[in-house]
């Protein structure tokens, strides 16, 4: 009889042979890289709640897609990109209350979604998987969309990195330096909408904003510069996503929630560790 640890190893390799598990991992890795990459700019511009409002809009898009019998991820993408552009407009109308635009769209999104859902009773089961994420049901067509959009977003952030950094740090100075701030802001918010739509399959509409915010919050605690903050937040997100997928498979629990809880644990770990180190340094050096 093989030893227990050997059996575990064998099981681990086995689950990677399942098609759904491969798709889950690939989709998870892409979402785990993109969410914090977009999230760091959102958090630093005090727009971290935008993830919530765009994902609620995406929910109404999903409902509309299911109702009209169209690919729901596609309608969700359309809805959230439209809403993202509306947020940019509303942000100007309520310049002094940046978060108000986000709250308005959140309410509009959830309102629309509830009304659409009430039209059709039978779709509740489908919706549930979008709400809380059901990584095991990622389809091949989802994966293609996730990869295409993922590469686009990744390249966009790579090529606009210094502009996005400057706008996040000091929007006015960025404008004076000649950066086309208005256009980059609009383009960026579309990237946000795309990131949320492609991630909701993995982690769920209700939880996607936590993958945008939590890894960034963790990395902000310990990073020494912006580049490090960006890379560390991606690192923390990937740890949570990959281990979350495995843990949720073995314990047969919801993948989205597991990933979020792991992110919270990582953040607490870093926070406590940092405080402990500080105290240690104080006692050693006086």
């Amino acid at each position: 009889m093989p030893k227990r640890s050997e059996r575990r190893e064998k099981e681990m390799l086995e689950i990677l042979q399942y098609g759904f598990m491969q798709r889950a991992l690939l989709a998870g890795i892409v979402a785990g890289a993109l969410c914090p990459l977009i999230g760091i700019f959102l958090v630093l511009r005090r727009m971290s709640l935008i993830g919530d409002s765009l994902s609620h809009i995406a929910l109404s898009g999903i409902a509309a897609g299911i109702l009209m019998n169209i690919y729901p991820v596609g309608t969700a993408l359309l809805f959230s990109v439209g809403a993202a552009l509306a947020i940019e407009r509303l942000r100007k109308a309520y310049a002094q209350y940046a978060e108000l635009a986000i709250a308005i769209l959140l309410s509009a999104g959830i309102g629309t979604a509830v009304v659409l859902i009430s039209f059709a009773r039978g779709m509740n089961i489908d919706l549930f998987s979008y709400l809380f994420g059901s990584i095991a049901t990622v389809l091949e067509e989802d994966l293609i969309l996730i990869f295409l959009l993922g590469i686009w977003i990744l390249l966009s952030v790579k090529f606009l990195y210094k502009e996005l950094f400057y706008i996040a740090f000091d929007e006015e100075a960025a404008r004076l330096a000649g950066i086309p701030v208005k256009w980059i802001n609009r383009y960026f918010i579309i990237l946000v909408a795309m990131t949320i739509t492609l991630s909701m399959r993995v982690i769920g509409i209700l939880l996607v904003s936590s993958l945008i915010v939590l890894p960034v919050a963790t990395s902000l605690q310990i990073s020494k510069n912006f580049k490090q903050a960006t890379l560390l937040s991606v690192f923390f997100a990937e740890i949570a996503v990959i281990s979350g997928i495995f843990i949720s498979y073995y314990l047969e629990i919801a993948s989205g929630g597991t990933i979020v809880l792991l992110s919270v644990i990582l953040m607490l770990f870093v926070l406590i560790g940092k405080g402990f180190l500080k105290r240690l340094r104080r006692t050693v050096y006086g």
Binding site: F159, E163, A168, F169, D170, A173, A177, S223, K224, N225
Partner: peptide, 26 residues
């Protein structure tokens, strides 16, 4: 008024950002 003191940027990153006009978009 304008400065976020907890922004995770190093001094050189802040200064280099303004080189935009010399480096260009993308």
């Amino acid at each position: 008024r304008d400065f976020n003191f907890s922004f995770p940027a190093s001094v050189e990153e802040v200064v280099a950002a303004n080189l935009y006009s010399q480096i260009g978009l993308f």
